[in-house]
Amino acid sequence: MSKVKSHKVIGFRSTRLAIIFFLFILLLSMQFGPYNQFQLANISTLLIAVLSITLLTGASGQISLGQGAIMAVGGYSAALLVTRLEISMWLAFVLAIFISALFGLFLGLAAARLSGPYLAGTTLVMALAIPSIAIRFDSFFSGDIGFSVDYGYPPDWLTNLLGEISIEEWSLYVALPFAALSLFAVLNLSNTRSGRTWRAVRDNEVAASLAGINIARTKVIVFVCSSALAGLAGAIYGFRGLVAPSVYPTDLSLLLLTAAVIGGLRSIGGAIFGTFVIVFLPDVIEKITKFLELPETISIYLPALMIGLLLLITVILNPRGSAGALEHIRHRHKH
């Protein structure tokens, strides 16, 4: 009885958080010019991908360095559906989720046998190999050139409602609802029984299997859910203008991991924070380097340096990320 009750409360809480996030970004966008509105759209899109890592690593302890490759799967699925079959973008996004989930199923079946460094290395190889498929079968995937796809125009009812909508605003309006929905889904997932099962597997596989948890099946399910999210993110990310191998490089996979790590692999709030950092940090650094008049060789590499350092500092000082640090401080205040 009490279980059912707490479940409902959680469902309510995640709905509330998702709505707060939605409104917060929306309000923020009203303060911003077009460039930063576009960055907010990027944040919404990438947040979905970062959540896919938080789900995977934070809930199951598995690490994937190939989330960018799964994004490519989603992006190419949607782009092919739209250009070849001429279906609507929205439908293509939904189908991309299913195709990526299916891909995640295969990946998960393979990954269930791997852990730790094996999985990390294998997904890294995948991050490099998957985009090269597009070049290998270039008549189908149109090689290096890729597909030019975009969000199209806002529907009339929306322009009637809000007046003139810029391209930047429109990309935010496309990405934001998906981000809020993903947030809602992940919040719910990690609080349900399956979420607890996943964490049990993460913390101690032997103990979990003694408790009757099917480890392999659990890992596969986690992979499917995570890939579905990454695929959706990839589709939205690609429809900013281009779906091509260069849009989903290995560095993207590493950047996403960085966001998840610096926020705190266990924390969904951390994922949001981390995504803000990776998107806005380069801009901030650019302002600083301009102000200090640093030479270009430094300013080009400074964001990468800062991101690498952030990653290192996070694991060394507090592997639980900024969310963990906050928790720590709060804890201390209580005593």
Binding site: G116, L254, L257, T258, G308, L312, V315, I316
Partner: peptide
């Protein structure tokens, strides 16, 4: 997993 993440940070730096 944590050392793997640390090594990626070193790589980036």
């Amino acid at each position: 997993t944590i050392p793997v993440i640390a090594s990626l940070g070193i790589l980036g730096v």
